[in-house]
């Protein structure tokens, strides 16, 4: 099954903030066209892992270890180079679409700005690609949606737009941190299908951070479980969710509401 090429390889990632070790040697690898789910209770370091990949750790954080993408180590990349990677090869989607969307700029403007910057497209080409992306994330009336503003869309549509913006520059890696947590289940279902489809179709390597093991079960290929800054278990979805080998994973599964355990 996992014959895919490794796109991103994190090894021995440690992050210290103010003398406190937040990540204590994280190993994680993302494959082309696969969704890698990252679970674990709050404070275990899931978000920090994603931010480290993006070079967006809080001020004063120190990171050691290695984050390899296409032969480079993102941890040692000069800021200018890292800037190009972020929003280019590596894109992100957060829990709250407001984090990724500017309220005062039209959807079209936000989509094309990234592209013109990263892909060096002219205005017409960028517009055509933006409308195509809006269609791809299934925003109805893409042509018309191009000129509208974020507040004119529902929460689910806004998250789709955030995903379109993340995809604008054809990333190889998508970090999605609780992308459906704020959505209604009905809308979540659509966004999960969308993410799965994009992963299959574009060969994206996705790191999906979620506390929801139902979401994990629906779209992750591999699952890793974090606890106190370490990955305590990694394996194929079916194995980790059905026959967890680590006691902590078992306790997470047992604490689920709505399951007759």
């Amino acid at each position: 099954m996992s014959t895919g090429k490794t796109t991103l390889d994190i090894t021995g990632l440690k992050v210290t903030i103010g003398g406190r070790e937040i990540l204590r040697g994280v190993d994680l690898s993302l494959q082309e066209g696969r969704v890698h789910g990252l679970a674990g209770e709050s404070g275990s370091g899931k978000t920090m892992t994603g931010l480290a990949v993006l070079g967006l750790l809080p001020h004063g954080a120190r990171a050691t270890g290695r984050i390899a993408l296409g032969g480079r180590d993102l941890l040692t990349l000069p800021p200018r180079e890292l800037n190009k990677v972020r929003g280019g090869e590596v894109a992100m989607v957060f829990q709250d679409p407001a984090t990724s969307l500017h309220p005062m700029l039209s959807v079209g403007r936000q989509l094309t700005e990234h592209m013109r910057h990263h892909l060096k497209l002219d205005k017409r080409e960028a517009r055509a690609r933006a409308v195509e992306l809006l269609g791809k994330v299934r925003i109805p009336g893409a042509e018309e949606a191009y000129g509208r503003f974020p507040h004119q869309f529902s929460g689910g549509m806004r998250q789709r737009i955030a995903i379109a913006i993340a995809l604008a520059c054809s990333p190889r890696v998508l970090i999605a941190d609780e992308p459906t947590t704020a959505l209604d289940v009905t809308v979540q279902a659509g966004v999960l299908r969308l993410l799965r489809g994009l992963c299959d179709e574009l060969g994206l390597a996705v790191l999906l951070v979620t506390h929801d093991l139902g979401v994990m079960s629906a779209i992750a290929d591999e699952v890793s479980v974090m606890k106190d800054g370490l990955v305590v278990e990694t394996g194929p979805r079916g194995k980790v969710l059905r026959e967890p080998s680590h006691a902590y994973t078992r306790s997470l599964l047992d604490s689920l509401p709505g399951e007759t355990a």
Partner: peptide
């Protein structure tokens, strides 16, 4: 029925939940 079908199950089976199309 649609609301309940949209809840993904943590059974490890990789089944995508059903979408209820259209907004409220």
């Amino acid at each position: 029925q649609a609301l309940l079908r949209a809840i993904p199950k943590p059974d490890g089976m990789g089944v995508l939940p059903e979408e209820l199309t259209g907004d409220v």
